[in-house]
Structures are given as C-alpha cells and as structure tokens.
C-alpha cells in the first residue's frame, strides 16, 4: 500500500518535471536543427548559431539587455542600500510612506506600471529609447533591493555605528567599515534579484522603449510572428549560462561543507 503510494507520487512528479522541462528540451534540441522547421528535425547543424551571431539585430539586443541589466543593477543596488540605511534611522511615518510607495510597482500588474511610465516619459517629451528603458529598470529594481537589505538592517545592533563614531570614525567610515559589511549578504542577494528582474523584463521594457532599442525579450516577441530558429539558438545559450550559474551557486556551499567535515 505504502509502496504503491510512493510509485504514484514518483510518476506524478516525473510527469510534472517533464511538463516543466519540455519547452526547455525542445528549445535546445531544435536550436541544432538542420532545417528551418520548428516541428521537424533533420540533421545536426550549427547554422542557427551562425545566423544569430551574424545578425546585427540580435547582437544589439543582447548588448542592450546586458548593458541595461548591469547599469540598472549597480545603480539600484547602491541607491537601494543607501536609502534603506537612511530609512532605518528615519521616523516611522517616512518609513511606511516609502514602503507603501515601493509596494506599488511590486503589487501592481506590470502593464499598469508600464503604461504609467509610457505616458510620463511622453508628456515630459523624453525620447523613448535607451535612457527611458534604463530609468524604468532602475525604478522597478530599487524596491526589490530594499526588500532584501531592510531585514538585514533590522537585525543590526544600532549601537554599532555609534560605538564606531565614539572611537573617532567619521559617519562615512562607520558606514563603509561597519554597517555595509554587516548587511553584505542582503546587498548581494538584492543585486542578484535586480539583475535577473532587469535581464528578464519584457512588459515594462516593451512599453517604454523606442528608436530600435530592443532587449532580448522584445526581440523574441517581435520575431515570434515569423519562423526564426535563431531564437532557439539564443535561448539555448541563455539556458546554458543560467544553468551553469545556478548549479555553481547551489554546489559551492555543498563542496565547502564537505571539506569542513573532512
């Protein structure tokens, strides 16, 4: 009876995992397809990878995606951390006010945030393109950084910075040498979240961009109207990179643990 139940649950898990990975396996397999079909395989070829690297549209999409993700991550991590530290010393009114406002882009459907920004940039007469996309990404990344930094600050001993300054450190030194190192794990996870949010964003980018500035998501969306297996090649590279990073992140602590046990 117990064994039966175990087998049933294993079969169920296997089916669900197949469901999760079917599109990923499909993408990888068809990126090596010898012909243009998205449904029939014929032979192994790397021509879609060649096509991808020789397509200036796709390469510029990749460059914009990475560039915006890197700048947005750096800016939002710094600003988010500074603001979170400032708020931790502020009164509760300001704190709740900022937290509630930060909730807006997180809780609102992305399309609502997107059209708000679209109208905002247009009414200011800012030309849609790289700058608007970057500003939008910084805007929606900062709340996530603050969400991951604030809990770390709450656990920080408030006397630490005071003690540091009593010993003659300037406020800036206290900040850099005492507070920031203590909340580093929160800052790093915030930066990671910001990077992936920016890298994967489609809806907001799609509404606020213009002048041929596209990221990978917009490219996939506009190209999906025609058959284009180069998308599969690009996707496969992204899948490979993300898998390597995630596996490394998850395996390194395990290896460290094992070494300590020895």
């Amino acid at each position: 009876m117990k064994k039966e139940r175990k087998i049933i649950s294993q079969i169920f898990m296997a089916i669900m995992l197949l469901f999760f990975y079917a599109p990923i396996i499909y993408t990888v397999v068809f990126s090596f397809n010898g012909n243009k079909s998205l449904t029939h395989l014929s032979g192994f070829s790397l021509k879609w990878y060649e096509k991808m690297f020789s397509s200036s549209d796709m390469m510029s999409g990749i460059v914009y995606t990475v560039l915006i993700a890197v700048i947005a991550t750096i800016v939002s991590t710094i600003v988010g951390t500074i603001t979170a530290i400032g708020l931790s010393k502020s009164n509760n009114v300001l704190k709740t006010m900022v937290e509630r406002t930060n909730d807006l882009p997180i809780m609102n459907p992305e399309i609502v945030t997107a059209i708000g920004l679209l109208m905002f940039f247009s009414s200011l007469g800012i030309k849609k393109g790289f700058v608007t996309m970057l500003l939008a990404h910084i805007m929606f990344c900062i709340p996530y950084v603050m969400l991951s930094v604030t809990p770390k600050l709450r656990r920080l001993d408030p006397n630490l910075a005071d003690a540091c300054m009593d010993l003659g450190a300037t406020p800036f030194q206290a900040l850099i040498k005492v507070i920031v190192p203590q909340i580093m794990p929160g800052i790093i996870s915030g930066a990671l979240i910001a990077f992936t949010m920016s890298f994967d964003d489609f809806i907001i980018s799609y509404f606020v961009t213009g002048n041929g500035v596209n990221n990978i998501s917009i490219m996939v969306y506009t190209m999906s109207k025609r058959i284009n297996p180069s998308i599969n090649a690009l996707s496969t590279i992204i899948i490979l990179l993300i898998t390597i990073v995630l596996v490394l992140i998850n395996i390194i602590p395990l290896i460290k643990e094992r070494k300590q046990v020895k």
Partner: peptide, 27 residues
Amino acid sequence: LLITLPMWINMLVRTYAWMGILQDDGV
C-alpha cells in the same frame, strides 16, 4: 532547484517554445 530553474529562464523564451510544441504539426 529543479522547480526554480525554469523560472530563471526568460518567460518569453519558454512561451515561444510552447508554440512549436503545440503546433498542428508539432511535437
């Protein structure tokens, strides 16, 4: 890890793949 891994891959990319799987002459 197996459940979260696909979440890290672009939603557009994964949705696009379903188009090929579900097509009339698809997988």
